[in-house]
Design a protein around this nucleic acid. Structure first.
Lengths: 359, 359
DNA sequence: CTGAAAGCGCTTACAG
DNA sequence: CTGAAAGCGCTTACAG
């Protein structure tokens, strides 16, 4: 069934040299004289020989594969990131093994352990809330790794992150300047390093002003459940005048909730989101976003990974990229009459086909 | 640097048996007596031994890896598909190697060849326009493969596809019933099997009526270029009253173009899209879509792949899943006065921040 | 049921 | 510069 692929021995035989010599021309690991070298090249060509990466990996304890671990691919931002890595990696002869942590440290650890058993040449990791055991396992294996997007304790690992503090600072100050006094930040997990940085910056921006900030943690991944949670908030009264969503899924849920409750955006509530979704410009009003330079992240991370693979003991490399605030129609100035103090929104749109799980 | 992982020999030594015996309990490839078996299990546990898949793969010419090849991950639908595969595969102890064809047969072939050199246990392929050489290479290698989403010539390969004819038939008939007489179908590549099926169905629906159909092929992946192309159409006069987009990227470009040209949807033009984007319900008007059951596809494809890996010579397995038409506000009835005959839209919105490449 | 041994396809000291 | 040979960690006929 499986016709045997040519091996290095076939090439050697055809070129009239030893396997070792073929290996040397393949790897440039030793000088091979001009004509032998050419004979080897010709033989490789004639047989359309390609190396068996399994054998190579077994011998060298290192395969030309880089493992990419992100929480989910269905999040547009992570999908784009993986896409970008696939591009740059395959142009350098690397395969991508993709694993998903589901933002769960246990799964993350297990999946990374499996990746390590393949002796991958390197790992790109968007870490979960608590990646300690995962990072320890990677460190123990000596596999080069670059941490991306979410910072971990500095000093041990190469990483490329965003300047979340600055981005949030910009966003918060912008809102405050527009008259907002009650700002809510909706997050998946408070404990996430990225989130903590953002919360700190939000509070710092509010310090010394009369601005009230509030963090809403919504651990669920289920849109219905999230919307139900939001509905509670808006019905509870004392509604914020501006909401910052930590990712595009929350932004989407918020927009749908606005619609259900007939909350006008931005007249009643302004909205701004981290994690620029591709639909930001399609919705009405257009969504204000913090734009993260995905391609730049991927390129930088790859650069770090390559240099780490070449030099495992070099100094730790760090990059903090800039994220841009892009204000659009979903954010507006607060007029005194509209400050929502003590206001409730509970007009559930009767015609909405929405199922409201849990309500 | 790299502490040596325990090997099967370490386990054997600790359990006081031979490596072959350990292998047998690992694989259940031969009966091992109760107590020896337990000793092996204990040793594995004590050393937290895991098999080296590279060695295993080298020996068996088969690794517990499945290769997934899609055109792009940044397309939401494909990302979801890959996500779904990762889930089901890793729960069965398989890794995922992900490659991207960029809808280019040459790249597809090259990347698949590389995949094959890893002796992957199976492949899931969303084929490019012309996957002939790729499929030949896969067939030659004897690797189990399931073709997904886009049908290829029947009979050689397991595949799970959608009933595109029926979906398009429903969509077209729905539009015709609402009074539409000029329908445009915007596609990436006419030659794609999926697209051809849809075009055929569209024409069939129009046959015997006074309905004019038109296919617009836009090979570009650049949103600016696509919009420029669309602007031409709308300026050209004799604008269609209904447009069907073959994927969500086109739908997005169309919505933006409507906005630029102050075309009202659905009053001036109705819009409907294959490939349900996650923002379909966020835009105004809500987008009408043909909804494809992603998870079901993934599950079915995996089922086929597993059974193919178990039985390489079994009969070809085929599934054609049903895609639902979900009508929403973006589609409406045509009133006689609004039939756009000879109409042009060329009010370029001056305030739009849009860059119009090429115009 | 169990072990000794060959072999999967490479790479890499080690001689020469 | 080049070749012979060992070895990476498994699996699998083959004896027993």
């Amino acid at each position: 069934m499986k016709p045997n692929r040519p091996t290095i021995l076939d090439v050697a035989a055809r070129a009239g040299v030893s396997a070792g010599t073929v290996s040397h021309v393949l790897n440039g690991s030793a000088k091979v004289s001009g004509k032998r070298r050419q004979r080897v090249l010709d033989a490789i060509d004639a047989l359309s020989y390609t190396r068996n990466p399994l054998a190579q990996g077994l011998r060298q304890l290192r395969t030309p594969v880089v493992g990419v671990c992100v929480p989910h691919t269905s999040v547009a931002y992570f999908a784009k990131l993986v896409d970008a890595f696939e591009d740059v990696a395959s142009s350098r002869g690397f395969e991508i093994m993709q694993i998903l942590s589901h933002d769960n440290p246990r799964i993350e650890h297990k999946r990374i352990a499996s990746l390590l058993s393949y002796h991958v040449g390197g790992i790109i990791l968007v870490p979960s809330v608590d990646p300690t055991s995962t990072l320890d396992a990677i460190a123990r294996s000596g596999t080069p790794v670059v941490v991306v997007d979410r910072p971990v304790a500095q000093g041990r690992f190469d990483q490329v992150t965003f300047d979340n503090r600055n981005a949030m600072m910009q966003a918060a100050r912008g809102l405050i300047r527009l008259g907002h006094r009650r700002i809510m930040f909706v997050v998946r997990q408070r404990a996430l390093a990225t989130t903590r940085e953002r919360i700190t910056a939000l509070r710092a921006a509010a310090r010394g002003t009369e601005v009230t900030t509030r963090v809403l943690e919504c651990a669920s991944y289920d849109a219905d459940a999230i919307r139900a949670r939001l509905v509670e908030i808006f019905r509870g009264g004392n509604v914020p005048t501006a909401i910052i969503a930590s990712n595009s899924m929350f932004a989407a849920c918020l927009l749908r909730t606005f619609e259900m409750l007939r909350i006008r955006c931005p007249q009643d509530v302004s909205l701004l989101a981290f994690d620029q979704p591709d639909w930001a410009e399609l919705v009405t009003p257009k969504l204000s976003v913090v734009r993260q330079p995905t391609m730049e992240v991927a390129r930088k991370a790859w650069e770090f990974l390559i240099s780490r693979m070449d030099n495992e003991t070099g100094p730790v490399q760090t990059a903090e990229l800039h994220a841009d605030l892009v204000l659009a129609a979903s954010v507006s100035r607060v007029r005194p009459a509209e400050d929502n103090r003590g206001k409730r929104f509970d007009t559930l749109a009767g015609s909405s086909p929405l199922r409201l799980g849990g309500l």
